[in-house]
């Protein structure tokens, strides 16, 4: 009895030490993970008037101010326009991709038709070509449709949505787990495929719809390759990523670093909040996707 409780006590102690070690590790990890964001935030508040906007070798600004944010909002650049473009692209891409993915997933998961295997295998093979291979071709295709430069915003939406059917894996995997018996019962009651799709499957697929829409919504915020290739030379068609990466990469923009940081914060905050808010669905999606492959 005595022995046992001593044992228990030593185990407790061991566990406590172990936990303390774990906490230390977690705190360290958190510091590393948050450091760049803190740095970004601090720099965005650096005073442009007294410390200029270039890069510096200290973390905490000597003077805090809203200079950089003011610069973005007072119309010296097209920042609001770029931001608006990105929001528009993100919303439409999100809606379009979700619709496409749902259609493809339902057809592949629930229906058996001639060419189904061929289609899946063919798309799998297509996916093995590197994405930027076709940059020049996409540009000229869109140009034929008048969707470059001035028309780049709808053009980018079109490109992102058009091929999105190929990204059906996660969603189809989810549909596969919905019991077939439900569909069969509904069909016995005389419901058409379309009715089952709209009234049965879609309501059940809420988590995966949110996941798909969320992932699709986040991607355009980071698109500076395709967007700059298609919109080049037309400032009012840029998205935030295209416009702001120039502030870092191009020598024409001296002293824009803190402005880049401020813009970066403005981009990151809403996307991060949305992500955090819908995190549950994201986790469900990636976990399901990982297991299905």
């Amino acid at each position: 009895m005595n022995n046992k409780s001593e044992n228990f006590a030593s185990m407790k102690r061991k566990q406590r030490i172990g936990n303390a070690f774990c906490y230390a590790l977690l705190v360290l990890i958190s510091v590393i993970w948050l450091f760049p964001f803190v740095g970004l935030l601090l720099q965005s508040f650096r005073s442009y008037a007294t410390e200029y906007g270039g890069m510096v070798n200290y973390l905490v600004p000597k003077n805090f101010s809203l200079d950089n944010y003011r610069f973005l909002f007072t119309g010296e650049t097209n920042f609001l326009r770029w931001y608006g473009n990105t929001v528009v692209i993100a919303i439409f891409v999100s809606i379009g991709q979700t619709i496409f993915v749902l259609c493809v997933s339902y057809a592949l998961s629930r229906m058996r038709f001639k060419g189904r295997d061929f289609l899946m295998r063919f798309w799998l093979i297509l996916g093995m070509f590197p994405g930027f291979l076709t940059l020049i071709c996409l540009y000229f295709l869109l140009k034929q449709m008048g969707l470059t430069q001035a028309g780049a915003v709808p053009g980018l939406i079109l490109v992102a949505v058009a091929s999105s059917g190929m990204g059906y894996y996660v969603c189809k995997g989810y549909f596969d787990t919905l019991p077939m018996a439900l569909d069969e019962a509904a069909r016995l009651d005389g419901a058409s495929r379309a009715r089952i799709f709209f009234e049965l499957t879609i309501p059940l697929a809420k988590p995966i719809i949110i996941y798909t829409a969320l992932v699709a919504f986040m991607a355009p915020w980071c698109d500076f390759i395709m967007a700059s290739y298609i919109a080049f030379g037309h400032d009012s068609s840029y998205n935030v990523a295209v416009a702001m990466q120039r502030w870092v990469f191009t020598n024409d923009y001296q002293g824009y670093f803190t402005r880049f940081c401020a813009g970066g914060v403005l981009v990151a905050v809403p996307v991060t909040l949305l992500f955090m808010f819908l995190q549950k669905y994201y986790v469900e999606g990636v976990t399901g996707g990982a297991v299905k492959g």
Binding site: F100, C103, A107, L126, T134, L138, A162, R193
Partner: peptide, 26 residues
């Protein structure tokens, strides 16, 4: 097209999209 051939309805646009913006460029 809404029932037995619903797959054709569902896949028409996605397949066309993939053709124009992925297959043809590749």
């Amino acid at each position: 097209l809404l029932d037995a051939n619903f797959d054709k309805t569902l896949l028409a646009l996605p397949v066309t999209g993939v053709f124009v913006f992925t297959v043809l460029p590749i």
